[in-house]
Simulated assay, not measured.
Amino acid sequence: MNEEISEELRGKLIELARLQGGEAGELTDEHERWALYRVAIDDGIGVTELFDLISLEPDSALASSVVVHMVERSAPEERRLWVARLPAEVQGSAQVRVAELETVDMLCSGGFPHDQVADSLAGWSTWLQLRIIAFVQDTHVLRILAEQGRTKRVRRQATEATHVSARSTR
């Protein structure tokens, strides 16, 4: 689906493509814009420019997807700045992702009491549980996920991570 884009967005996308060493392509095509956004997201080329232009993106689903990806890669103090680039009515999924990342941060820092992990688990998405396994080294938390995780994959990966974490603390 090709959408009209503003001249301001067109200019910023052309600059983003130039920074990335490529051609801008057909910028009314959201797939072409997504390709430019992915380079900024994955390779970090043009992140500042992406931040400046994402509020101009006419495809709200595309803009939301970009912001969700960026909050996963941003420092905690920058996450909400990315969310604020979206119109209020499409901030929901990005706000959820920020809250999930804050949970991971609290678990990593020891700021989330162990006795609340099992009680909170039912409300945690599979994505969050997998992210916890990838970043949290607390064997108590990992054991809870190994026993009560949402999916077989979560339970298996948490079991494996528990063994790795236990070996590294010896």
Rank of each mutant, 00 (worst) to 15 (best):
N2G: 13
I5W: 13
S6L: 13
E8L: 15
L9V: 06
G11Y: 07
K12M: 15
L13P: 00
L16Y: 08
L16I: 08
A17D: 07
L19M: 14
Q20M: 08
Q20K: 03
G21T: 10
G25R: 06
E26F: 10
L27W: 03
T28M: 11
T28Y: 06
D29W: 12
R33E: 09
A35Y: 00
L36Q: 10
R38T: 08
F51W: 09
D52N: 15
L53Q: 07
S55I: 01
S60C: 07
A61D: 14
A61H: 11
L62D: 09
A63T: 11
S64T: 15
V66G: 05
V67H: 12
V68R: 12
V68T: 10
M70W: 04
M70T: 03
M70Q: 06
V71D: 02
A75W: 02
E77P: 00
E78S: 11
R80G: 01
L81Q: 14
V83H: 10
A84M: 07
R85I: 02
L86H: 10
P87H: 09
V90D: 04
Q91R: 15
G92I: 00
G92T: 11
S93C: 02
A94W: 04
V104A: 06
M106C: 05
M106L: 15
C108D: 03
C108L: 14
C108P: 00
G111H: 07
P113G: 05
P113W: 06
D115M: 07
D115L: 05
V117Y: 02
L121K: 13
A122G: 11
S125Y: 09
L128Y: 11
Q129C: 07
L130W: 08
L130N: 12
L130I: 05
R131P: 00
I132E: 08
I133D: 03
A134N: 13
A134C: 01
F135N: 14
F135C: 07
V136H: 03
H140F: 14
H140W: 13
V141Q: 04
L142I: 09
R143N: 13
R143V: 06
R143T: 10
I144R: 06
E147A: 15
G149V: 06
K152C: 01
R153T: 14
R155A: 01
R155G: 01
R155Y: 05
T162D: 09
H163L: 13
V164K: 13
V164Y: 14
V164D: 09
T169P: 00
T169G: 03
R170Y: 11
